[in-house]
């Protein structure tokens, strides 16, 4: 006990260091928390901006007129504010895309998860990933200058347009700007998203289920389709919903290849504008804060976010309803 004062000093030094260290820990944790909070702030900022910047528009136009109006020409005189044509364009291009992406994505996922040899899977997955990583403006170029000309060639199989040859069956011409070409390209772009998430879901199905199925004499296809697919349906639905969100929000492919004219039509052979391409078209010009153009693109953006939110909520409940746990 000779060194009593020294021990006291050491202990107090220890506590000082500990306090210092604890303080540093708190500081770091707060910093990390703030970083994590930034994503929440982003969401809040998006919602607040979309609502506040489009509110002035709804003082001029009633929401009923906005949703049910069949004519979209806000920058003309007299202005007309019916968003239905834009929603229609979004709907048609998305439907075309999903007609391509859902079958292709599901089949690819089922094949990669249940049929393909590991070697093939190792090659196919990166290819699909690269397909998903190509910039959308490049896909737009592809849709306008490759897919649409090919479609036009197919549309006149014997050197004469189907619309002239068989006008009763094909009353419409396939125009240079149309919704079919970009829709198909969009579908190809979305396919990897659907296939990769669906495949993960299918591979997560326990192997005992497959073995049980094989033991009863089922073939590979029967096992995949009647056992694995239903067991993974929750994740598969989630992938479809993500695909729908991407199709609805896709901008550049449609902006390049579908024309920018708002048209109320369900015919994919015709050009049209979507919600997203309207935003692009207006922002290509000068849009100072507070002008009609400025307000309408925020209103369009709000519509877009509400649409994707709607699909996400539906998807959430669907995939919960069908979830299987093992």
């Amino acid at each position: 006990m000779v060194d009593q004062p020294l021990a006291v000093a050491a202990r107090s030094l220890f506590y000082r260091k500990k306090r210092h260290r604890d303080l540093r820990q708190r500081f770091i944790e707060v910093l990390l928390f703030l970083a994590a909070l930034s994503s929440v702030l982003t969401t809040i900022a998006i919602m607040v901006l979309l609502v506040t910047e489009s509110l002035p528009l709804f003082e001029k136009v009633s929401i009923i007129e906005f949703i049910t109006g069949r004519d979209w020409a806000p920058l003309f005189d007299p202005p007309r504010y019916g968003i239905l044509p834009l929603i229609c364009g979004t709907f048609v291009t998305s439907m075309v895309a999903l007609f391509v992406a859902i079958p292709m994505g599901t089949i690819a996922a089922m094949y990669l998860s249940e049929f393909a040899a590991p070697k093939l899977r190792e090659v196919a997955k990166p290819v699909l990933e690269i397909l998903a990583g190509i910039p959308t403006v490049v896909y737009g170029y592809f849709a306008l200058l490759f897919v649409t000309p090919v479609l036009q060639m197919l549309y006149s199989p014997f050197g004469e347009k189907l619309s002239e040859w068989l006008p009763d069956i094909f009353p419409y011409e396939l125009e240079g700007f149309n919704m079919l070409g970009p829709g198909i390209v969009m579908g190809i772009m979305i396919t990897p998203t659907i296939s990769s998430i669906s495949e993960d879901a299918m591979r997560a199905v326990p192997v005992e289920l497959r073995e049980g199925s094989y033991a009863t004499g089922a073939t590979r296809f029967q096992t995949a389709w009647k056992v694995v697919f239903p067991a993974a349906i929750s994740g598969i639905i989630a992938s479809y919903i993500l695909g729908i969100s991407r199709a609805v929000g896709e901008t550049m492919i449609v902006a390049v290849a579908a024309g920018l004219q708002p048209t109320l039509t369900l015919n994919p052979l015709r050009p049209a504008a979507t919600i997203t391409t309207y935003i692009v078209q207006v922002s290509l010009g000068d849009t100072p804060h507070g002008t009609i153009g400025y307000q309408t693109i925020f209103a369009a953006g709000l519509t877009l976010v509400l649409l994707t939110l709607f699909f996400n909520v539906i998807g959430y409940f669907l995939s919960r309803r069908f979830r299987e746990t093992y």
């Binding site: 998006i46 929000g249 997203t276 935003i279 693109i297 994707t308």
Partner: peptide
């Protein structure tokens, strides 16, 4: 899942 153009509006 938010469409990229919405970030443009933000």
């Amino acid at each position: 899942g938010v469409p990229s153009i919405v970030y443009g509006l933000l």
